[in-house]
Amino acid sequence: MLSLLHHPNLVNLIGYCADGDQRLLVYEFMPLGSLEDHLHGLPLDKEPLDWNTRMKIAAGAARGLEYLHDKANPPVIYRDFKSSNILLDDGFHPKLSDFGLAKLGPVGDQSHVSTRVMGTFGYCAPEYAMTGQLTVKSDVYSFGVVFLELITGRKVIDSTRAHGEQNLVSWARPMFNDRRKLARLVDPRLQGQFPMRGLYQALAVASMCIQEEASARPHIADVVTALSYLASQTYDPHALRGRQRDDQKREDRLILNIEGVVRDDSARENAGIMNKNFDRERAVAEAKMWGANWREKQRAAEQGRFDAVNLNG
């Protein structure tokens, strides 16, 4: 299958060898290893991935999935999206590898592909794990899990942690609804070097991707738009420190204004639920909108350079 797929965020298949019952695939060399190596197997003398690089990797990996889902014909469901299958080229350019479990997606009136449940525990979407019904939204769930890995630096399943923290998704989900706890989700190796507003938007995207209901998850194209914007915003901890404080004050005023109209305990509880959904969906919508504007500016700039070349020519 990989021989028919070509995209900057998919590894290139160089060739293969077949000798008797032995089979060997030869891929391009990826000098920086896998994303898993940099998140969970990094030697103490190596610097951890910074926030900008993490967003760049997430955006590139999402573009690889977008190609499989929306550009390939018929669509391809990757089925084994995980950090060990994201390889890194020079400059931390990500490429998806290992298409041994990939399946052609549904065509025509089909809504899903029924198949034996395969993949890696912790990354599989719940509906696929329970029914064997596979859709492109199953990949979106797996992407959300890997995105959480990038943000938190935690393993998806870690039996060495305390009870209640061993499953990454189960540990993270309750904190999505409490803005005061969101900073606890960030990899401590970043030592606070991340944009708070960018964190809100990144966690909003991750939260939408790991929804229990497949229909509630976003399309991968929307994820790409949001993450392309986040990846384009180069984080400078010194330049943005004051701006972060201003953003936080605006967010706090918004929450206070909304909560100020609540009159009783039951209404306060309902408003709290509405605020949580509002915050998450607003963050996703803002990231998508800014991402679309950013891409439009990029196209305009490229067109301007093209026109300049024609005039000079």
Rank of each mutant, 00 (worst) to 15 (best):
L104E: 14
N52V: 05
D80E: 07
R263P: 06
L150H: 08
V205W: 00
P43T: 02
A301C: 00
T234M: 09
R161S: 15
L230T: 07
L311H: 15
L44E: 12
K288T: 04
W294H: 15
A300K: 07
V223H: 04
T120C: 03
K46H: 15
K46M: 14
L104S: 14
D187L: 03
G153Q: 08
S111V: 00
E36K: 04
L5F: 05
Y16R: 10
T152H: 05
R253G: 03
H112I: 03
Q233E: 14
C17Q: 13
R184W: 03
C124M: 13
Q298F: 01
H93I: 08
R305L: 12
A267H: 12
G41Q: 10
S232P: 12
Q233G: 04
H163W: 02
R241L: 02
G153T: 07
V136Y: 01
I210W: 07
T225N: 11
G164N: 10
P218L: 00
S111E: 07
R116P: 05
L5H: 11
E302M: 03
A216Y: 03
E213V: 05
P126E: 06
G91T: 07
G291K: 01
P8G: 06
L311N: 15
V224S: 08
A283Q: 10
F121M: 12
K276C: 15
P74Q: 12
V113Y: 01
D279W: 00
I77R: 07
R63P: 02
T160C: 10
Q191M: 08
A162K: 10
D21M: 01
A59K: 03
Y16N: 11
R116A: 14
Y141T: 08
M1C: 07
L199S: 14
D279A: 11
E47Q: 09
L25V: 05
D246Q: 14
R217H: 03
L240A: 09
N12W: 00
P218C: 02
T160Y: 03
I273M: 13
T53I: 05
T152R: 04
D279I: 04
E165P: 14
L25Q: 08
D236T: 05
L44S: 13
R116H: 08
F121G: 11
K288L: 01
Y78Q: 14
V76K: 06
E259L: 03
G242H: 01
N167D: 14
A102L: 05
Y27T: 02
G33S: 05
L25A: 09
Y200E: 15
L35E: 09
R241A: 10
G198I: 03
Y235N: 13
E286Q: 06
L254E: 15
N277M: 11
Y67P: 11
L199G: 15
S232Y: 06
N312G: 05
P31D: 12
A226T: 08
L4C: 11
A231E: 11
V186T: 11
N73I: 04
A183T: 14
A72G: 12
